[in-house]
Amino acid sequence: MKPPDFDYVAPTSVDDAIKALGSDAEAKVLAGGQSLIPLLAFRLAGPSLLVDLARVDGLDHITDEGDRLVIGAMTRQRRAERDPVVAERCPLLVESLRHVGHPQIRSRGTIGGSVAHADPAAELPAVVLALGGRVHVTGHSGDRTIEAEDLFQGFLSTSIEDGEILTAVEVPASGPRTGWSVVEIARRPGDYALCGALCQLQLDDAGAVVDAHLALIGVGDRPMRAHAVEAAVLGGASPVEAATLAPDGLSPGSDVHASSDYRLHLATVTSRRALTQALESAA
């Protein structure tokens, strides 16, 4: 359970971090280490160099940009969870963070690290996907922005290239009469969920749903946005009716924790509960 040998640098600027990453084909970014260090302990990763971003200037911030909320990659999850600006601008993110591991994991784990790690059962990638957010990355060839729908490429895999660093995560700020909910089925609190649904709905003055976001976790090799359910809700379907569409297009794997069929069943159950709760909290 001891990590293999590696070299370590802790640069203080993004430029130096990119240079360090470019200096070694087997280099890897170290953020909070809450996923990477277990991978090292199990010898599932063997980088020759770790580039620690903890001392890099400018990556730890929460910025309210009016219609958008921008969070620096190295912002600790525990800070974001307790931040009043995040609570006001993106309550779904706060609710989701409470489901990420335990407080001691969130003290170290970062917003950017969770999104870059792209675990299919992780909450934060699903929030960014559900809300139609994007990430900012930078590398040798400059800065670019990747839309959430193009970011998640498969199991623990994103379109962030080797040598690039995720610098910030951006989500649209929530409007008035917005409700949200995170419903998960997990063996123990804090465990990665067998299946979960993350939902945000917005109502107009007459109480009709005018904006619907739903993403599912634990049902594929990446977080999945439930477009069919969203369309049904926007068309006036009840949570019960709409949730029956949740398994559309999903083919989750079976493992020791849950069979594929059970996960599909949970997709309906968690979607129904999340839609119902989000509607109630928006009303």
Binding site: I105, S107, R108
Partner: peptide, 8 residues
């Protein structure tokens, strides 16, 4: 509070 086994 942090895990000392998940920190170098």
């Amino acid at each position: 509070g942090v895990r000392s086994c998940l920190l170098f």
